[in-house]
Amino acid sequence: MQNNVNITKNVAQYRQDFAIIANWVKFGSKVLDLGCGDGELLQFLQSSLEVKGYGVEKNDANLLACVASGTNVIQMDLEDGLSGFEDQSFNTVILSQTLQAMHNTEEIVLEMLRVGKEVIVTFPNFGYWRNRMQIATGNMPVSKTLPYQWFDTPNVHLCTINDFDQFCKNHNIEILERRVITDGKEVNLMPNLLGSLAMYRLKSK
């Protein structure tokens, strides 16, 4: 399970965003996955890159799923920050498709940069043309990356790629890399219009 051949093989079975995240995480490094769900991403990173992984999860059922799969999981609410974690104690801190559902959005990004040497943030791009179309026709967007109705969505802080770029600039955050994908394929042209999922690799300046 330690060579590149296996990594490639594993990647094919997983989501495209997992593959990009795996490219950004170093072999054998220490990784913190915030809002880790049932631990799928961590298990993938552990099996392919032998990372020392920890997840943070609030939901009871997800916590139990992590325990079942032998994934290290810490039950806590991200809205309370990351007070149990030392400065710069992880190589990578990941927040995968959770940013938009956070109330303390600014705080969590800054906390991630405090705890992690590098930070990976992914979120659905609200500027994606299909979202814009639905707004233009008079409805709140509902799509694969935004599967909720306006009345039952957990998402409270949706943003566009432009917005997040500006956020990083304002907070003195260095964007090491940005990848944008739609339906599993990379988007290089007009990402804020054509990209459905935004992925950032960040560090403090």
Binding site: V67, V73, I74, Q75, M76, G84
Partner: peptide, 16 residues
């Protein structure tokens, strides 16, 4: 306790 274990990179899960 959890924090001290994390500081030492031990295998730990915590449920509240």
């Amino acid at each position: 306790i959890v924090k001290a274990l994390l500081d030492n990179e031990r295998t730990v899960s915590y449920a509240e």
